[in-house]
Amino acid sequence: MGANRPGPGRRNLITDVPGLKVGQAEDMAVRTGVTVILPDERAVCACDVRGGAPGTRETDALAPENLVDAVDAVVLSGGSVYGLAAADGVVSWLGARGRGFGLVDGIPKSPVVPAAILFDVANGGDKVWGETPPYRELGRRAIEAAGLDVMLGSAGAGCGAMAGGLKGGTGSASVVSEDGYTVGAIVAVNSWGSVVAPGGRTFWAAPFELDGEFGGLGAAGLVAGPDQWGSAKRPAETRNTTIACVATDAALTPAQAKRLAVMAQDGFARAIRPVHAPFDGDVVFALSTGARPLAEPSAYTLARLGALAADTLARAVARGVFEAKPWPGAYVPCWRDLSA
């Protein structure tokens, strides 16, 4: 390893990973939104599902033994099952531009766009959409807006989210390792569990914070006994799910990307308590843009990248809630409302 000090990338966003853009779109009347992670070129992708109530699309295609070895985009969406249609808008946009998986010349390519959804349809927004839910159009708008800047908080797939008893949101973070690998994460935080310790406003992710990125309160307030969770949702509020994508510029095989996704799930455990409940649908995608060879010994380097991905995802969770604000004309408790 080199002598550079590890730290956040220039933007402290997943788009610090070279070759990635992110686009987002919201419908504030519906209180929902979509986030699209768009690689410049087709990227290796894997997925790990830990929640007991997931909603996903195209995740079976990501298994290492299957034909598809790369994807064209990843979609995170609100809207529960309706939100899976956001990927339709993304697929159509990509296909119209000749992007996708193709086996035969002369026929349209098939864009590969895995997706995951969270449940935000009980947040009071206007859900009377009949046979025209907004998600296909939101997906198209999101990919059309893809760039390097990412709005955090009540934006994209986290627009309609609640994190325990607090307003949830979209968070992102990045880190550059000593030897120059970049790891990034983006997450829509709609957890049943709490992101803060009981009795205060200290994030569970506090030990992993870099440069005061979510308040700089330190970890002194991290105290909790058995069954003490902090600002978790009430038992009857079983409509949740936190969905995320981590990414790296390291060149990974599909099997290695799967291990990265598995290790990154620990970021949820570091930032949310409890997590992976029967009524959560927690999903983590892992992307590899392949810009940098994986240094030998490869297993050791992969382990380091997985640990960095977990820490970075934990930071992204806290940043999403730290930046969250109420919907226009509405009041919901936010992290900034908590007493010090």
Rank of each mutant, 00 (worst) to 15 (best):
Y331D: 08
W335D: 03
V284L: 13
W229C: 08
R10M: 10
L62N: 01
M162T: 09
V113Q: 04
R239V: 01
A197T: 06
G130S: 07
G52K: 00
M162L: 14
F101T: 06
P333Q: 12
G306W: 08
A295M: 10
I243C: 03
T312W: 06
I107F: 13
G281W: 02
R234K: 14
E131G: 07
A161W: 01
C245D: 02
R336C: 13
G218C: 03
A330T: 13
P54Y: 06
R259L: 12
V284D: 00
A286K: 10
P54I: 03
G215F: 13
L217F: 11
P111F: 05
K21R: 15
W335H: 15
A232S: 12
A73I: 04
L302G: 04
G102M: 11
G100K: 02
A86E: 08
V71T: 03
R259G: 07
T301H: 05
A163V: 04
V36T: 06
D105F: 06
V246H: 12
G23E: 12
V68C: 05
V275R: 01
G2T: 11
M1P: 07
P134Y: 13
I186R: 04
G83L: 10
T289Q: 13
A247M: 12
R136E: 15
V150D: 02
T202D: 05
V17T: 05
L305G: 08
A116Y: 07
A155I: 00
R259Y: 12
S80C: 15
P114A: 10
G164V: 03
Q265M: 14
R50D: 00
P254Q: 08
V81R: 11
